[in-house]
Simulated scan of single mutants.
Amino acid sequence: MSPTLHWQKSSFSGGDEDEDCLEIASSPTSLHLRESDHPTTILSPTPGALRALLNAVKA
Rank of each mutant, 00 (worst) to 15 (best):
M1E: 02
M1C: 00
S2H: 06
H6W: 00
W7N: 00
W7I: 00
Q8S: 10
K9I: 03
K9A: 08
K9W: 02
S10Q: 03
S10N: 02
S10W: 05
S11E: 02
S11P: 09
S13P: 01
G14D: 06
G15V: 12
D16H: 11
D16Y: 08
D16K: 11
D16A: 08
E17S: 04
D18M: 02
E19V: 00
E19M: 03
D20E: 12
D20G: 15
D20V: 07
C21H: 04
L22M: 12
L22R: 12
E23Q: 09
E23Y: 03
I24N: 02
A25T: 05
A25N: 03
A25L: 04
S26W: 14
S26N: 12
S26Y: 15
S27F: 06
S27R: 12
S27T: 07
P28A: 03
P28Y: 01
P28H: 07
T29K: 14
S30Y: 14
S30H: 15
L31E: 15
L31R: 12
L31Y: 15
H32L: 09
H32M: 08
L33E: 04
L33C: 06
L33T: 04
R34Q: 08
R34T: 02
R34N: 04
R34K: 03
R34M: 11
E35T: 03
E35V: 04
S36D: 03
S36V: 01
S36I: 01
D37T: 03
D37E: 11
D37I: 01
D37F: 08
H38L: 10
H38Q: 09
H38D: 03
P39D: 09
T41V: 14
I42K: 07
I42H: 10
I42N: 07
L43Q: 08
L43N: 10
L43D: 09
S44M: 06
S44C: 11
P45T: 10
P45G: 08
P45H: 11
P45K: 03
T46D: 10
P47W: 01
P47M: 00
G48N: 15
G48T: 14
A49W: 08
L50A: 10
L50S: 06
R51S: 14
L53I: 15
L53D: 02
L53A: 15
L54P: 05
A56I: 11
A56G: 09
A56N: 13
V57T: 13
V57P: 03
K58G: 13
K58L: 12
K58R: 10
A59Y: 06
A59W: 09
